[in-house]
Design a protein around this nucleic acid. Structure first.
Lengths: 170, 170
DNA sequence: ACATATAGTTGGTGACCCCAACTATATCTG
DNA sequence: CAGATATAGTTGGGGTCACCAACTATATGT
């Protein structure tokens, strides 16, 4: 596999021809990621902070759970939460069930901030695809979804709400 | 635009339905980016280091040019090059034309290392799309290319081979 | 020549990441 | 129940990476 020459374009896009799959995906990833990072920064947040707050919007996990979600060391999460808490974006709440655990909870301020950031994210990503026709956009989202879902499954990330087996079916 | 609810999936993928465009692209970006970062790490490199070496594979830019390519502050590039040079991956060469400039040059060791990393990148990204049919893969790369190229143009990144004044034109 | 622009480095600060070590609480044994 | 173990979270130490402001040195414009 991946036999093509070996020349992932790590440098900025120069021409306009079609990139091969690997290059195209790598580039697309950079474009999206960069776009999101810029927006996060504009909201005085890092990507991780946004991810953290994004998770907290509808969850109230422990530090360990956050570490798993974010694929970070627990100590990294401690620092992350420290800084966010210092800015009043999250709060630590002792867990009732387990005396060792701490629940991380988003504050109204945090919720408001991440809400704004996510809104801008939406706009930015949508803007990226502004040149595609509705049909193409749909096609792109379907293909991207396929890749993402397959990858998620492959990596065994399942989370809650086990859905029945529709989806990829292949 | 981007009026949809506002729910970029920042948390891991759970279900398997089709994500909307924004979510799909954001997720895809995370998947690719994460994959690349893991591989870089496996080669004892950071993403930036790989990008740096990737650029140096067929260029010999000054620090300032690197700063523009990488969208970093010049001082950041100094540090980056310092560390890479410390590991023998790059070398600083005084520029002949301009007494102030320094050319950054990749070493054989650096070339070998980035070569291996890029090869692994290729394999990893290709693996991501393993579930797509050849037709779908092609379609995806075409669409992704379109987005990437349009974005690059929009942001006015041109590099060498100065194209006439098309661009944003606004 | 004199001012100004540009190239690069340095120093300081901070976010973020990891690992190893440590405290405290749970849990699993005998 | 005691004692060993496991788990939750924090702390401390160290490294990368990023920025900004200040500084040196070389170029360039008038």
């Amino acid at each position: 596999m991946a036999g093509h020459g070996e020349r992932v374009v790590l440098t900025p896009v120069t021409g306009e021809g079609n990139l091969d799959l690997v290059d195209a995906l790598a580039q697309l990833s950079f474009a999206v990621h960069g776009s999101l990072a810029r927006i996060a920064a504009a909201h005085d947040l890092s990507m991780v902070q946004v991810r953290l707050l994004g998770i907290l919007r509808d969850r109230r996990p422990t530090v360990s759970e956050l570490a798993r979600f974010l694929e970070l060391d627990k100590s990294s999460v401690t620092g992350l939460v420290d800084r966010a808490a210092g800015r009043g974006l999250v709060r630590r709440v002792p867990a009732a069930r387990d005396g060792r655990s701490v629940l991380v909870v988003i504050t109204p301020a945090g919720r408001a901030l991440v809400g704004r950031a996510v809104q801008a994210f939406d706009a930015a990503v949508a803007a990226l695809a502004i040149d595609l026709s509705p049909t193409e956009r749909h096609r792109l989202s379907v293909l991207a979804s396929r890749v993402v879902v397959a990858d998620a499954r492959r990596r065994g990330i399942v989370l809650e709400g086990e859905p029945e087996g529709v989806g990829v079916e292949a």
